[in-house]
Amino acid sequence: MKIRIRIETEFGWGEKRSHDLGTVERDSVEVSEEDFGLSLAEGKSLLKEIQRVLLEDQVEEISEVSRVCQFCGSYLPVHDRRERSIDTLFGRITVAVPRVRMCMCGLPGHLEIKAAYSPLTRVLRNRATPVTVP
């Protein structure tokens, strides 16, 4: 038996994306008790992959929304992308985070400044997801 594990993301602007996380295979003929359910290692690996996909897609959506100037509505260009490590409950995950050029609409005389910022800094100041204990 093969069990395929897939996540589907639907972004706020309507785009849909599928992520294949992996396949779990089990033998039903020569079965043992170790073959039932997920092993701890398989579970940890799958949870880390789910976390990675979730973070990557959240970073993309937060970045896209942040590229629209609040004042003039123009679509701001990406200055560059940098890798950022985020500590999560399932391990450290590295994602590519764009830095967005600041809009010049609010500057007197529209000086040509190449300032850029990361939209992610307003959400993850400590580069870690919160740890909640029930």
Rank of each mutant, 00 (worst) to 15 (best):
A128Y: 01
E10H: 02
L89D: 15
R84A: 03
Y75L: 13
D35V: 11
E10K: 13
R67I: 04
A115Y: 00
F11Q: 03
P77N: 05
I5A: 01
R67S: 14
E33R: 09
G109S: 12
R26E: 10
V29A: 08
E34K: 15
I113H: 08
I5Y: 06
H79K: 13
K114A: 06
R127Q: 13
K2L: 13
N126E: 15
L124R: 02
C72F: 05
C103F: 02
T9K: 09
V78C: 02
E49K: 15
L107H: 05
L120K: 02
G14T: 07
K16E: 13
V24M: 05
P130M: 06
C69E: 05
I5F: 11
S85N: 10
V95H: 03
A115E: 07
I3P: 00
F90C: 08
L47F: 06
V95L: 05
K2H: 08
D57V: 01
R17E: 12
F36E: 06
I86T: 11
E10P: 00
P130S: 10
P77H: 04
G106P: 00
F71P: 00
F90Y: 15
T94I: 13
R6M: 12
P130T: 09
L40Q: 12
V53A: 15
F90V: 13
L124Y: 09
I7N: 00
V29S: 03
K114S: 06
E34C: 05
F11T: 03
A116E: 05
E49L: 15
K2V: 09
L76A: 01
C105L: 06
R122Q: 14
V123E: 09
E83M: 07
E83P: 01
D27E: 12
E8K: 11
E61C: 09
V24K: 03
R122M: 11
S74E: 15
I3D: 00
E34W: 10
I86W: 13
A41C: 03
N126P: 00
R101M: 15
H19M: 01
V31G: 04
S32A: 08
I93T: 06
P130R: 11
T121Y: 03
S28C: 04
L40N: 07
F36M: 11
F90S: 12
E15S: 07
R125E: 13
W13I: 02
G106C: 09
L55E: 09
T121N: 13
K48W: 01
R84T: 03
A115G: 01
Q51E: 15
L40V: 14
A128C: 11
M104S: 14
V68Y: 10
G12K: 04
E64K: 15
Y117T: 03
F11R: 12
V53R: 08
E112P: 03
S45K: 10
R26S: 09
